[in-house]
Amino acid sequence: MLFSKLFRLLVLGGAIVGSASGCAGPGQAQPAADKKADDRDGGASSDSRSAQTQDADGGTAQTQAADGGSAADGGGGGVLGW
């Protein structure tokens, strides 16, 4: 019960909020030349407890490799919460 309510409240409710002001354009991303890794990672320490960067752990690195990314070239992390 809690979880189906959460799905409606968050996922469906969020989709409604997202559609409130028209749509995002597909071609408005910054050019590839602006894709500087340090724009996103610069100055960030890797020792935070609440934002963890994924190391090259078996399954994760393999699935990333299928998409062209890899843990070795700066794998993504996640955010610890409650």
Partner: peptide, 22 residues
């Protein structure tokens, strides 16, 4: 600390989406 967590291989728009989803 403001720790950026998106993979380095992603462009800016994809990196924002990654971080918002996470």
């Amino acid at each position: 600390m403001d720790v950026r967590i998106a993979p380095r291989s992603l462009g800016p728009r994809d990196a924002v989406l990654y971080e918002v989803v996470a």
